[in-house]
């Protein structure tokens, strides 16, 4: 099987066990992309400033923020936070029936935390819901926290690994773990463990939205990322993410393997016509 192509943003940041950024050599990034035949991606990275061969951390951090701000724009246009809230609302309602206390929504790989901040701004899930975002990238977490504070939104963000969500989960029975546009960043062998990490915490449910791969979604991603995005990295990674996304069958199998105690459903429709409204579809797991 041919190796999966890489997104540029997957290679620009590296963090040590303590969550601190590690220097990334430009030649190494360009080399990996070239080896995979991704010449355009290699050209994009070649233009990045790299004093002494190390990618300029300030430049890369600022680039990451710009890329995520652009991504947020697409999410807004898609009404994505509302779609997430619409799916979560009955799940949260069911958890509330089991007893008093807050319900927690944990967004892993949250980036700038757009989904959580938008849900906090609209109070879409009602009172008594805690919104916690987790991301490995400390720059994104700092910016998400700053934005939430600036707009007075009731949500918080912590630096952490999507494979270790326990840092944000106190009571699994009253917690739902979500992500959006994140799962395709994981290597395929790691998928079952991603779901297993959530199953071990006995969370009430999980719901992970990602692109449904098909010809339509790749074409749509191309049109949209060239119409709406400015950064070459956003355009490259946006289109590639549609190509790299996992099929419903793979997600179903990975979720069933990693979280056997959960009822799993990939909420995906037909591929034979463009599915403009469910560009991102969730794999949903509910504790049986």
């Amino acid at each position: 099987m041919a190796p999966r192509p890489l997104e540029i943003t997957d290679l620009l940041w590296s963090f040590d066990a303590g969550g601190q950024p590690v220097a990334v050599a430009k030649a190494a990034v360009v080399g990996r992309l070239t080896a995979l035949g991704q010449r355009r991606a290699a050209r994009i990275v070649s233009a990045f400033p790299a004093p002494d061969g190390i990618l300029d951390p300030g430049y890369v951090a600022a680039l990451g923020l710009r890329v995520h701000c652009e991504l947020q724009r697409l999410g807004e246009e898609l009404q994505f936070a509302r779609r997430v809230a619409a799916l979560l609302s009955p799940i949260v309602g069911t958890i509330r029936l089991h007893g008093p206390g807050p319900v927690r929504i944990v967004d892993v790989g949250c980036g700038l935390g757009f989904v959580l901040r938008a849900m906090a701004a609209s109070s879409a899930l009602g009172a008594g819901v805690e919104l916690v975002g987790v991301d490995l990238n400390p720059f994104l977490i700092a910016e998400a926290s700053r934005l939430a504070e600036q707009e007075g939104l009731a949500c918080r963000f912590e630096q952490g690994d999507a494979f270790g969500p326990e840092l944000a989960v106190q009571d699994g029975a009253r917690c739902v773990i979500i992500s959006s546009g994140f799962v395709h960043h994981l290597p395929e062998p790691g998928l079952p463990e991603f779901f297993a990490a959530q199953a071990r915490l006995r969370v009430a449910a999980f719901a992970h939205w990602d692109i449904a791969p098909c010809l339509w979604s790749t074409f749509g991603a191309w049109v949209y990322h060239y119409a709406r995005m400015r950064e070459p990295v956003s355009r490259h990674d946006g289109v590639l993410s549609a190509r790299r996304a996992y099929s419903a069958a793979r997600l179903q199998m990975a979720a069933q393997t990693g979280a056997p105690g959960y009822g799993i459903q990939v909420m995906e429709g037909s591929h034979w016509h463009p599915r403009a409204l469910d560009v991102l579809r969730p794999v949903v797991g509910t504790l049986l």
Binding site: L65, C69, A118, E151, M229
Partner: peptide, 9 residues
């Protein structure tokens, strides 16, 4: 102007 600040509102 879109996609520049990350603000919700």
């Amino acid at each position: 102007s879109l996609g520049r600040t990350g603000l919700i509102n």
